[in-house]
């Protein structure tokens, strides 16, 4: 085969490889969605975060507005402290907004749902969301159900 055709084929091959890596990065992985660098940070304390993880999604009305940036345990308040990173374009959450931990589907991953409040002031970088609702722990729910059942009889 002529050296020119050979080189064209190899060039095509390498170009296709770069295209494949590009597609893996943009289409398959999370590069194109929210990148972790920008956005402002909020804090929220929860009694129980259930299966929430770093990079779990944060939604408002079901639309993704950010992701969990960090989770730590505060041994003074005995509560989990979650850092939320909200995309800069969603900068108008009233300061009395509430955060709840929900589960997507029966076995799905857990996410934080933001419920806007009615205050005139908006949450700024570093603010804390005071109204929080913990994750529903299935075992506790079943326990409560059995307990009330036994008490009722």
């Amino acid at each position: 085969m002529k050296s020119r055709t050979l080189e064209i084929w190899v060039g095509l091959f390498v170009a296709a490889g770069i295209g494949a890596v590009f597609m893996l990065a943009m289409k398959v992985s999370n590069l194109s969605s929210l990148n972790t660098g920008d956005g402002y940070l909020l804090k929220a304390s929860f009694e129980n975060i259930g299966g929430l993880k770093v990079r779990s999604p944060i939604t408002a009305s079901g639309v993704r507005v950010g992701q969990v940036a960090g989770i730590s345990y505060n041994s003074d308040t005995y509560q989990a402290e979650v850092t939320l990173r909200i995309s800069p374009e969603f900068d108008r959450f009233p300061s009395d907004s509430s955060a709840s931990i929900f589960t997507a589907g029966l076995l799905g991953e857990q996410y934080i749902g933001l419920e806007p409040g009615a205050e005139e002031e908006y949450l700024q970088n570093g603010d804390t969301i005071t109204l929080t609702e913990s994750a529903v722990v299935l075992e506790r729910l079943i326990g409560q159900f059995l307990y009330s059942k036994a008490a009722g009889e």
Binding site: A25, K27, S29, N30, S32, S33, R55
Partner: peptide
């Protein structure tokens, strides 16, 4: 299909490790 994939597949942890 695409959005759940993009939410779960991490560029550094998954794609780079595969590479």
């Amino acid at each position: 299909y695409w959005s759940q994939m993009q939410n779960s597949v991490d560029l550094w942890d998954d794609v780079l490790n595969g590479m």
